[in-house]
Amino acid sequence: MSDTSKPIDPSRRQFVTRAGGAAGAAAIAPGVFLTTPAQAKPADQPVSSENRWGILIDANKCGNGCNACVTACEEENGWGSADPSEDRSRPDQKAHWIRKVTIRDKATQHVTTLPLMCQHCETPPCVDVCPTGASFKRADGIVLVDKHICIGCRYCMMACPYKARSFIHEDLKDQRPWAPRGKGTVESCTMCVHRVDEDGTPACVEACNAETHKAMVFGDLYDENSEISQELKKHGGKEIRADLGLNTGVRYRGI
């Protein structure tokens, strides 16, 4: 994004493709709308607690060595390799929203690989500890940082069991307009809230599907007809650190 005179980026192209697809469906079958989004939310309406967005990740399908979800997130939200302005921070100071982790069961030697990011807890510890209320959970279950009132105390980073949050250690430039981020505040995975609000799918899930791994399903946990609810109903899903009772929005299978 260093060349701002050419405002084209992959996410926009994807957006156009999506819109084109929907329009195509409308043209082929006028009157019958197969692609009508179930939770179409007008732009001027607030999000509702009747939805709870979640992601189901099947670790058995997740590709060992595949990093597509991480790259897609970087590109979409402008961090990591997609943010050349964060160049003075040491590696352990740089922002990270999502990471790939490979683990081995000590007893069975079974190796599992999976993506790890903000788990969007129903009862998030980061929200409990934030002194100003900058760390908050939206009505639809997405956990966010309101960087306008974040004072940069980092208590939420102490409280998060998943190490999902990052503090920005230096001045940034050329952020994505849909993912503002800056020095002295804390940030984490937003579940691509800007896409979700327009009935889109998070970039990581989209990228996983594009890689044909299809290890990630995004959807409304409260809608019993949604793919994610059906899958969870049929096969179940596990939470990481379920012992904490956080009722996470991100669930795993195969761990």
Binding site: D92, T102, I103, R104, L116, I240
Partner: peptide, 17 residues
């Protein structure tokens, strides 16, 4: 480090897992 996967060892992981 945080213990996210009890009974497992970390083979690899971004961000100093």
């Amino acid at each position: 480090p945080l213990v996210l996967f009890p009974g497992h060892e970390i083979v690899s992981g971004g961000f100093f897992e």
